[in-house]
Design a protein around this nucleic acid. Structure first.
Lengths: 197, 197
DNA sequence: GTTGTTCACATACGAGCCGTATGCGTATTG
DNA sequence: CAATACGCATACGGCTCGTATGTGAACAAC
């Protein structure tokens, strides 16, 4: 039986993460005070320090949660694609779309790296990136993609998609810019394809 | 004649920027206190607020200075290349190499975007991007590169290089990872070429 | 069932950092 | 030489964070 204390603790953790996610996304990490977050969750800083060890620990928990959600969406998008190669492209486009969401942009792309350090060193190894790496490795194995370093390629692809997203987000006419970015992304990615076709 | 007050002011601005650049690079923006920075420059926070309006203003000044230096180095690197296309690649590689420096990484790639917002809005960054865009446009006109949107391609290439740099900088063995990243970067960029080899 | 223990969380306190308001002294102006 | 402007220092209050300590409910032992 799950003891009553344990499930209470899960509950408070969830409430804190929910409140923090909201605050970090809207105000940014630095401007979000722990007092506000905990009060918003109906708790105090005592609970926060007990469960997450501090402000950074809370951010880490929020990042892990969002990261997991992103991976789920990436997998879903890839599985709908007609071929593995199209799956990779679809993954990239999906990544761009996710990066357009203010929450992802603020927490995962700006504050996260600044506070926690490089994403590839996050505890869960940045599942999002790991996923792309595996996809590329599979394409290399089947001969679709040139034999480059899979992680390097995944890194660059993600970086390209990320910058495309930031560009679109800051553009005056996102609707006009989006197709341009997607087209350029496809062209770039084609550089990985095995010669010919 | 440059009044004595004006040149004194330039002097204090330079001292503050120098101290801030040092502190931001080593401790990070959030952990660097204004009292420490100003004391290190032989001044007080009064001078800082008078000259830069606050902590963010000081960071902006530091960012602008480093940004200008980076653009200068990028231009120099591109001009040494044998062809426009190689110039584009060299520019990307140079960007990667610069991002290996802790100062650039910490201030320009992590804290800068988190505190000041989208880097592509920074004055010199725009100039750099514009130059890359023009280079690509020229390559398109001469038939070397596929007819994609030049600005989109420029942003994606920059983003790829940026992420490659972050990856290398955080790696256990940067010397081992660097060539992988450069190779993958060249492969990706080749996707823009008109003729496959 | 009662008694003792654990532990999740609250409360209290101190220190540091930031922004503004104000004061001071020197360069500048007429 | 008197008056003003201004670059910078000083003083103060508020906010935020981290730690140290308190407390009451859930669990365990008998």
């Amino acid at each position: 039986m799950a003891t009553k204390r344990a499930q209470m603790m899960e509950e408070t953790r969830a409430k804190l993460i929910r409140a923090a996610r909201e605050a970090f996304a809207t105000k940014g990490y630095a401007a979000a005070s722990m007092d506000d977050i905990t009060a918003d969750a109906g708790l105090t800083r005592g609970a926060l320090y007990h469960n997450f060890g501090g402000k950074k620990g809370l951010l880490q928990a929020v990042v892990d949660q969002i990261d997991a959600e992103m991976v789920t969406r990436l997998i879903a998008a890839q599985e709908r694609a007609p071929s593995p190669w199209e799956g990779l492209l679809t993954e990239g486009v999906t990544y761009i779309e996710m990066a357009l969401e203010p929450e992802v942009q603020r927490i995962m792309l700006l504050d996260g790296p600044a506070v926690l350090g490089d994403p590839s060193q996050w505890p869960n190894q940045n599942a999002c990136l790991l996923r792309t790496t595996q996809t590329i490795q599979a394409l290399i194995d089947e001969g679709t993609v040139k034999p480059v370093d899979a992680e390097a390629a995944a890194r660059l692809i993600n970086g390209a998609a990320l910058n495309a997203a930031l560009w679109i987000a800051a553009a005056d006419e996102p609707r006009v810019v989006l197709p341009k970015a997607v087209e350029a992304f496809r062209q770039l990615a084609a550089g990985l394809l095995q010669t010919e076709r």
